[in-house]
């Protein structure tokens, strides 16, 4: 397997983190977290990839057919569910912050320091 998928996954993680560091808007920051998370999808799916493999559904292919690894697909699916939960919760918190505080700019929130 080539090293390219690992580099791509690392690059996506770094892009997401860069976005979170420089973010001026918490909704944008939550989006960047989702970008960082998509690096895990890329990594997991490419780990299980096999050349010439097809989808691991045996209903219409012979049982000795070459398929990609179904375990990582299950992992990626679980990961999607986890990510959706976290993103939804964080977006709800950001909305609440906009309602109560009137801003979602992380630099304008300085109630907690020192």
């Amino acid at each position: 397997m080539s090293v390219l998928p690992f580099l791509v996954a690392g690059w996506i993680l770094l892009v997401g983190m860069y976005g979170m560091v420089t973010s001026r808007d918490l909704v944008h920051a939550v989006g960047c977290l989702a970008v960082a998370q998509s690096s895990t999808y890329v990594l997991l799916l490419s780990v299980g990839f096999r050349h010439g493999g097809t989808a691991p559904v045996y209903s219409d292919i012979p049982t000795n057919a070459r398929v990609v690894d179904p375990v990582v697909q299950a992992l990626a699916l679980t990961d999607v569910v986890v990510g959706a939960t976290v993103t939804a919760l964080l977006l709800a918190l950001a909305l609440q912050l906009q309602k109560r505080h009137g801003t979602v700019d992380p630099d304008a929130l300085d109630g907690l320091r020192g």
Partner: peptide, 15 residues
């Protein structure tokens, strides 16, 4: 959720 500070702390915590 009525108080802005817990929401801010929870967001940082979560992210």
């Amino acid at each position: 959720v009525e108080d802005p500070r817990p929401v801010q702390g929870a967001l940082t915590f979560g992210l």
